[in-house]
Protein backbone atom coordinates (compact mmCIF):
# COMPACT_ATOMS: atom_id res chain seq x y z
CA UNK A 1 0.00 0.00 0.00
CA UNK A 2 2.73 2.49 0.79
CA UNK A 3 4.27 2.63 -2.66
CA UNK A 4 1.13 3.24 -4.63
CA UNK A 5 0.69 6.14 -2.20
CA UNK A 6 4.20 7.34 -2.93
CA UNK A 7 3.59 7.03 -6.65
CA UNK A 8 0.41 9.10 -6.49
CA UNK A 9 2.25 11.67 -4.42
CA UNK A 10 4.92 11.77 -7.06
CA UNK A 11 2.37 12.21 -9.83
CA UNK A 12 0.76 14.94 -7.80
CA UNK A 13 4.05 16.73 -7.39
CA UNK A 14 4.77 16.47 -11.08
CA UNK A 15 1.36 17.80 -12.01
CA UNK A 16 1.80 20.67 -9.66
CA UNK A 17 5.26 21.22 -11.07
CA UNK A 18 3.88 21.46 -14.57
CA UNK A 19 1.37 23.99 -13.53
CA UNK A 20 3.89 26.27 -11.97
CA UNK A 21 7.54 27.00 -11.36
CA UNK A 22 9.74 23.88 -11.43
CA UNK A 23 10.54 22.40 -8.04
CA UNK A 24 13.92 22.71 -6.44
CA UNK A 25 16.57 20.28 -7.58
CA UNK A 26 16.56 18.17 -4.42
CA UNK A 27 13.19 16.78 -5.41
CA UNK A 28 14.87 14.60 -7.98
CA UNK A 29 17.35 13.34 -5.43
CA UNK A 30 14.67 12.24 -3.02
CA UNK A 31 12.78 10.38 -5.73
CA UNK A 32 16.02 8.74 -6.75
CA UNK A 33 16.59 7.50 -3.22
CA UNK A 34 13.12 6.06 -2.99
CA UNK A 35 13.39 4.02 -6.12
CA UNK A 36 17.07 3.39 -5.60
CA UNK A 37 17.78 4.27 -9.19
CA UNK A 38 20.78 6.16 -10.45
CA UNK A 39 19.15 6.90 -13.78
CA UNK A 40 17.84 10.29 -12.73
CA UNK A 41 14.21 11.31 -12.33
CA UNK A 42 11.61 8.81 -13.27
CA UNK A 43 8.62 10.55 -14.76
CA UNK A 44 6.07 7.82 -15.26
CA UNK A 45 6.22 4.20 -14.33
CA UNK A 46 6.09 2.21 -17.54
CA UNK A 47 7.12 -1.43 -17.38
CA UNK A 48 9.08 -1.45 -20.65
CA UNK A 49 11.01 1.75 -19.91
CA UNK A 50 11.54 0.79 -16.29
CA UNK A 51 13.12 -2.50 -17.23
CA UNK A 52 16.12 -0.81 -18.84
CA UNK A 53 16.59 1.79 -16.15
CA UNK A 54 16.14 -0.75 -13.36
CA UNK A 55 18.59 -3.22 -14.80
CA UNK A 56 21.18 -0.47 -15.20
CA UNK A 57 20.95 0.18 -11.47
CA UNK A 58 21.24 -3.53 -10.83
CA UNK A 59 24.47 -3.63 -12.80
CA UNK A 60 26.05 -0.44 -11.47
CA UNK A 61 28.88 -1.63 -9.20
CA UNK A 62 28.49 1.52 -7.10
CA UNK A 63 24.88 0.72 -6.39
CA UNK A 64 24.10 -1.57 -3.50
CA UNK A 65 21.61 -3.35 -5.77
CA UNK A 66 24.50 -4.82 -7.74
CA UNK A 67 25.32 -6.91 -4.68
CA UNK A 68 23.27 -10.11 -4.51
CA UNK A 69 24.73 -12.56 -2.05
CA UNK A 70 23.74 -13.02 1.57
CA UNK A 71 25.91 -15.29 3.67
CA UNK A 72 24.58 -17.35 6.58
CA UNK A 73 26.09 -18.78 9.73
CA UNK A 74 26.43 -22.53 10.17
CA UNK A 75 23.08 -24.17 10.85
CA UNK A 76 21.45 -20.74 10.81
CA UNK A 77 18.67 -19.22 8.75
CA UNK A 78 18.51 -15.68 10.09
CA UNK A 79 19.81 -12.74 8.09
CA UNK A 80 22.84 -11.23 9.77
CA UNK A 81 22.80 -7.49 10.57
CA UNK A 82 25.46 -6.69 8.00
CA UNK A 83 23.19 -7.92 5.20
CA UNK A 84 20.10 -5.99 6.34
CA UNK A 85 20.78 -2.91 4.17
CA UNK A 86 21.22 -5.15 1.12
CA UNK A 87 17.95 -6.96 1.77
CA UNK A 88 16.20 -3.65 2.38
CA UNK A 89 17.49 -2.17 -0.88
CA UNK A 90 16.26 -5.14 -2.90
CA UNK A 91 12.98 -5.31 -1.03
CA UNK A 92 12.25 -1.67 -1.82
CA UNK A 93 13.39 -2.09 -5.39
CA UNK A 94 10.99 -5.01 -5.89
CA UNK A 95 8.21 -3.08 -4.20
CA UNK A 96 8.77 -0.05 -6.39
CA UNK A 97 9.06 -2.19 -9.51
CA UNK A 98 6.29 -4.74 -9.26
CA UNK A 99 6.99 -5.97 -12.78
CA UNK A 100 10.45 -7.18 -11.74
CA UNK A 101 10.80 -10.86 -10.97
CA UNK A 102 13.43 -12.45 -8.80
CA UNK A 103 14.85 -15.95 -8.35
CA UNK A 104 16.61 -16.65 -5.07
CA UNK A 105 19.01 -19.59 -5.09
CA UNK A 106 19.91 -20.92 -1.66
CA UNK A 107 23.02 -23.01 -1.08
CA UNK A 108 24.65 -25.10 1.61
CA UNK A 109 28.19 -26.24 2.23
CA UNK A 110 29.18 -29.68 0.98
CA UNK A 111 29.21 -31.56 4.25
CA UNK A 112 26.60 -34.25 4.67
CA UNK A 113 23.65 -35.49 2.65
CA UNK A 114 22.95 -33.85 -0.72
CA UNK A 115 19.20 -33.93 -0.24
CA UNK A 116 19.35 -32.53 3.29
CA UNK A 117 21.67 -29.82 2.03
CA UNK A 118 19.13 -29.07 -0.68
CA UNK A 119 16.56 -28.53 2.08
CA UNK A 120 19.00 -26.30 4.00
CA UNK A 121 19.60 -24.18 0.88
CA UNK A 122 15.86 -23.85 0.49
CA UNK A 123 15.49 -22.69 4.08
CA UNK A 124 18.06 -19.97 3.36
CA UNK A 125 16.42 -18.79 0.13
CA UNK A 126 13.08 -18.78 1.94
CA UNK A 127 14.53 -16.60 4.69
CA UNK A 128 15.60 -14.06 2.08
CA UNK A 129 12.23 -14.25 0.36
CA UNK A 130 10.32 -13.66 3.59
CA UNK A 131 12.44 -10.62 4.40
CA UNK A 132 11.93 -9.15 0.94
CA UNK A 133 8.18 -9.64 1.29
CA UNK A 134 8.19 -7.86 4.63
CA UNK A 135 9.78 -4.96 2.79
CA UNK A 136 6.94 -4.78 0.30
CA UNK A 137 7.86 -7.28 -2.42
CA UNK A 138 4.95 -9.41 -3.60
CA UNK A 139 4.80 -13.20 -3.36
CA UNK A 140 4.33 -13.47 -7.13
CA UNK A 141 7.56 -11.59 -7.81
CA UNK A 142 9.86 -14.03 -6.06
CA UNK A 143 10.63 -17.71 -6.46
CA UNK A 144 12.94 -19.20 -3.88
CA UNK A 145 14.75 -22.38 -4.88
CA UNK A 146 17.74 -24.35 -3.69
CA UNK A 147 20.94 -25.51 -5.33
CA UNK A 148 21.93 -27.45 -2.22
CA UNK A 149 25.64 -28.26 -2.30
CA UNK A 150 25.63 -28.72 -6.08
CA UNK A 151 26.87 -25.31 -7.24
CA UNK A 152 29.53 -24.20 -4.77
CA UNK A 153 31.10 -20.74 -5.15
CA UNK A 154 34.23 -21.98 -3.49
CA UNK A 155 35.56 -25.52 -3.78
CA UNK A 156 38.25 -25.67 -1.15
CA UNK A 157 37.74 -27.55 2.06
CA UNK A 158 38.04 -25.06 4.85
CA UNK A 159 35.71 -23.09 7.07
CA UNK A 160 36.13 -19.87 5.02
CA UNK A 161 35.03 -21.71 1.92
CA UNK A 162 32.13 -23.45 3.65
CA UNK A 163 30.96 -20.07 4.95
CA UNK A 164 31.11 -18.65 1.42
CA UNK A 165 28.88 -21.47 0.21
CA UNK A 166 26.18 -21.03 2.87
CA UNK A 167 24.40 -18.32 0.92
CA UNK A 168 21.32 -16.94 -0.72
CA UNK A 169 21.82 -15.41 -4.17
CA UNK A 170 19.29 -12.92 -5.56
CA UNK A 171 18.91 -13.00 -9.34
CA UNK A 172 16.55 -10.86 -11.42
CA UNK A 173 14.70 -12.13 -14.47
CA UNK A 174 17.13 -12.26 -17.34
CA UNK A 175 20.07 -13.06 -15.08
CA UNK A 176 19.49 -16.79 -14.69
Amino acid sequence: MRYPLAASMLALALLAGCSSTPMTADQGASVEDRTASSAGTIPTVRPDQMQGAGLAALRDPNNILSKRAIMFDYDSFTIRGEFMPLVEAHGRFLAANPQMKMLIQGSADERGSREYNLALGQKRSDAVKKSLMLLGAKEGQIESVSLGEEKPQCTERNEACYAENRRGEMLYAGEF
Binding site: R2, A6, M9, L12, A13, A16, M23, Q27, S30, R34, I79, M84, V87, E88, G91, S131, L134, L135, G136
Partner: peptide
Protein backbone atom coordinates in the same frame (compact mmCIF):
# COMPACT_ATOMS: atom_id res chain seq x y z
CA UNK B 1 3.34 20.87 -2.01
CA UNK B 2 6.52 21.23 0.07
CA UNK B 3 4.49 20.51 3.14
CA UNK B 4 2.97 17.43 1.58
CA UNK B 5 6.42 16.29 0.51
CA UNK B 6 7.82 16.67 4.01
CA UNK B 7 4.88 14.81 5.36
CA UNK B 8 5.44 12.08 2.81
CA UNK B 9 9.13 11.82 3.67
CA UNK B 10 8.29 11.56 7.34
CA UNK B 11 5.79 8.82 6.64
CA UNK B 12 8.29 6.94 4.50
CA UNK B 13 10.91 7.21 7.21
CA UNK B 14 8.39 5.87 9.67
CA UNK B 15 7.53 3.04 7.30
CA UNK B 16 11.18 2.20 6.76
CA UNK B 17 11.96 2.05 10.41
CA UNK B 18 8.86 0.00 11.03
CA UNK B 19 9.72 -2.47 8.27
CA UNK B 20 13.21 -2.72 9.74
CA UNK B 21 11.59 -3.53 13.06
CA UNK B 22 9.40 -6.11 11.33
CA UNK B 23 12.49 -7.69 9.80
Amino acid sequence: IMRIRDDHTARLDALESSSRATL
